[in-house]
Design a protein around this nucleic acid. Structure first.
Length: 280
DNA sequence: CCAAGGCCTGAATG
DNA sequence: ACATTCAGGCCTT
């Protein structure tokens, strides 16, 4: 019998969705917006504020999802190998800023930049006698200077980050509204933010706004599609244009179905492990 | 519409 | 050592 509901914490934390997480003894601690989560070995979530979270999307029907996305040999292997890998439902603003920071970067640097941003602008708390900095509120980043943000090691992204935070402050970007919108509408809105293109938008939609048909196409996914799906999607380009991206996404959703985002996560995890890429 | 070039930064590679 | 390349893209020309 396959236990579809199992959660593999290690694999989930180390799958490029979240950055501000650390393991202490056998507990994982992670910054999630204005809160810090603690997960024990059984996968039970506790939080600094005692609020409850469905961080691992427990309400998703994993049996149905896995059966639905297992459309080909490659996905079947990835799903089997990384059973327990979950998509997360993280704090939208933190996710939004995190993936603006992520563009043209790598996990170690993203993590280091986000830590610096949290230390400088986030509220300091003590949880289990350990110190944490929560993720800053939008207002704090919106009111920062470019120099202050640049000092966090984000380079040219500093202006993007501040302007993006301002758009959240002014409700031009309203996460509650985006959660209720469909994928296309939500994506169109997010793409108006400078510094956010197709890939970053899809990450935000998938990891924080419940859009499971989002399928972020980064270098790795392109590599995977070329390697395992060349017959099906046929591509031969390193950088793809906006039009190609959209066309490809249509084909992908047609192939994998409405939970395509889950397929992306399994494939991405598998390929990066194959290349022994570092995580957190 | 597409292609090419530039961009902060720091770890990895030569 | 030191220079160059590359990394989970995006924007401008």
């Amino acid at each position: 019998m396959i236990d579809y509901d199992v959660i593999n914490l290690e694999n989930t934390v180390n799958s490029g969705q979240i950055f501000l997480w650390t393991k202490q003894k056998d507990l994982w601690y992670g910054v999630n917006g204005q809160d810090v989560l603690k997960i024990n070995t059984l996968g039970k979530i506790m939080s600094y504020s005692n609020r409850e979270y469905d961080f691992f999307r427990d309400t998703d029907n994993m049996e149905e999802i896995i059966k639905s996305i297992s459309k080909d040999k490659t996905t079947k292997i990835a799903v089997q190998k990384y059973l327990g890998l979950r998509l997360v439902r993280q704090d939208p603003f933190q996710c939004f800023i995190s993936f603006i920071v992520s563009s043209n970067s790598n996990i170690q640097k993203i993590k280091s930049s986000l830590e610096k941003i949290s230390i400088k602008f986030g509220k300091k708390i003590r949880f289990d006698d350990k110190k944490f900095h929560m993720f800053p509120e939008p207002k704090k980043i919106a009111n920062a200077t470019i120099q202050e943000i640049q000092n966090c090691g984000v380079g040219y992204r500093a202006k993007f980050i501040i302007d993006a935070a301002k758009m959240v402050e002014s409700k031009q970007i309203d996460f509650d509204h985006l959660k209720k919108s469909n994928y296309q509408d939500a994506k169109e809105t997010i793409l108006t933010v400078p510094g956010i293109g197709n890939k970053v938008a899809d990450c935000i939609l998938l990891f924080s706004l419940d859009k499971l048909e989002a399928f972020p196409l980064d270098r790795w996914m392109i590599r995977i599609l070329e390697k395992y799906y060349f017959e099906k999607f046929g591509l031969e380009t390193k950088s793809i244009t906006e039009k190609q991206y959209n066309k490809l996404h249509e084909k992908i959703v047609k192939h994998f179905g409405p939970y395509a985002g889950y397929a992306q996560q399994f494939l991405f995890k598998m390929e990066r492990e194959n290349y022994q890429k570092k995580w957190l």
